[in-house]
C-alpha cells in the first residue's frame, strides 16, 4: 500500500476539457423533463441538455428564450446518472453563475437562447464549470476558446431538422484547419488577422492540425445518417436537439442515432439501425426561416 500525496486541484483546463474527452463518440440529447431524460439515458446518450423548450418550439413560440427554471434542471439531475448540461444566454454571466451553483456539468453559452449582450460573450475563465460554445467558422471558434470555452460545437441551425448548416459550419472550421496546416510561419499572422483570432491559437493549430479543444456538431441533425455524416466530416461527437423528441417515435430513434455515432463508418450497420424508425421531425428549409439563430454570437 502506498501513501497518498497532494489533495485536489479543481477547475483546471485539463479537468474542464477532460469531460469533453469523455463525451467523444457520443450523443448529447436535448430534453425538457425528467421523463425524456430517462428515455435519453436508456437509449445510450452520453449527456443530456436540460432546457424548457427544444429549439423547434422556441422558433414557433417566439419571444425571449432564457435559462431554464432551476427546479426543472434539478428534476433532470435527479432522474439520470449521466452528465447534465444547461444553456445560458450569450453574455449572461449571472445565468452561468446560477447554473454553476446548481452543479450542472457543462454550461452551453447558446445562440438558441436570446442573447443578453450584443458585444461580449461570458468570460469563461472565471468559472469552475466548463463551457461549450457554438461556432460557424474557425475565427468564431478560436475567439470562444480564447474566452475559455473547453468544447466547441458547430452551430448548424437549431430546430430545423435540416443538416445543411451543420455541414456548412463543420466544413468551414475543418477546411480552414487543413489550410492552416499548409501555411508557412509568416502566413499564420495573416490567418490570425483574417480570422480575428489570437496568433498563438492559430500557431497551435498549425502545429497540431486540430482545434485545441474537442469539436462536436450540433444544429439540425435528425437521422442516424445525419449523425454519421457529421462524424465522417470530422466531428468528435454530436448534439441532437429537436430531432429526437420532435420525431414520431423518440426512443428507438435516439438509440439508432447512438449506434450510428459509434459505427459512423460502417454503412451496413447504419442501414440496419436506420430501418423502421417512423417519421423524423418534419424539418424546415433554410429559405423558410425568419430568424437564423446561428447569426447570434460575435
Amino acid at each position: 500500500m502506498t501513501e497518498q500525496s497532494s489533495s485536489r486541484h479543481t477547475g483546471s483546463q485539463l479537468v474542464k476539457r477532460g469531460l469533453a474527452e469523455m463525451l467523444k463518440g457520443g450523443v448529447i440529447m436535448d430534453v425538457v423533463n425528467a421523463e425524456q431524460a430517462k428515455v435519453a439515458e436508456d437509449a445510450g446518450a452520453v449527456a443530456v441538455m436540460a432546457l424548457e423548450r427544444v429549439p423547434a418550439d422556441i422558433r414557433v413560440d417566439g419571444g425571449v428564450a432564457r435559462m431554464s427554471d432551476p427546479e426543472m434542471i434539478e428534476g433532470i439531475q435527479a432522474a439520470v446518472t449521466i452528465p447534465v448540461m444547461a444553456k445560458a444566454r450569450i453574455g449572461h454571466f449571472v445565468e452561468a453563475q446560477i447554473l454553476q451553483s446548481l452543479g450542472v456539468d457543462y454550461v452551453d453559452e447558446s445562440e438558441v437562447l436570446t442573447p443578453a449582450d450584443e458585444a461580449h460573450h461570458i468570460d469563461k475563465w472565471a468559472f469552475t464549470v466548463p463551457f461549450v460554445c457554438g461556432a460557424t467558422n474557425l475565427g468564431e471558434a478560436l475567439r470562444r476558446i480564447s474566452e475559455g470555452a473547453c468544447m466547441i460545437r458547430s452551430k448548424g441551425e437549431a430546430g430545423t431538422g435540416n443538416v445543411i448548416e451543420a455541414v456548412r459550419h463543420l466544413r468551414s472550421i475543418l477546411g480552414d484547419i487543413r489550410k492552416i496546416g499548409q501555411a508557412d510561419s509568416a502566413e499564420l499572422f495573416d490567418w490570425a488577422k483574417r480570422l480575428q483570432a489570437p496568433v498563438p491559437l492559430v500557431q497551435e493549430i498549425a502545429e497540431t492540425g486540430e482545434l485545441p479543444v474537442p469539436l462536436f456538431c450540433a444544429g439540425g441533425l435528425a437521422t442516424p445518417a445525419d449523425a454519421a455524416m457529421a462524424m465522417q466530416l470530422g466531428a468528435q461527437a454530436v448534439f441532437v436537439g429537436s430531432g429526437i423528441f420532435k420525431s414520431a417515435d423518440p426512443a428507438p430513434r435516439a438509440k439508432a442515432i447512438v449506434e450510428a455515432t459509434t459505427n459512423y463508418e460502417d454503412a451496413a450497420i447504419l442501414a440496419k439501425v436506420s430501418r423502421g424508425l417512423g417519421a423524423p421531425m418534419t424539418g424546415i428549409g433554410m429559405d423558410e426561416l425568419d430568424v437564423k439563430l446561428a447569426d447570434r454570437g460575435w
Binding site: R8, T10, V15, G103
Partner: peptide, 19 residues
C-alpha cells in the same frame, strides 16, 4: 461507486505516488 466525487465542478487533478 459511480460519480462518487460528485459532479463535474468537483472533478480534479492530483499527484499520485505509484508503486
Amino acid at each position: 461507486s459511480r460519480n462518487a466525487y460528485g459532479r463535474q465542478i468537483e472533478s480534479f487533478e492530483a499527484d499520485l505516488t505509484v508503486d
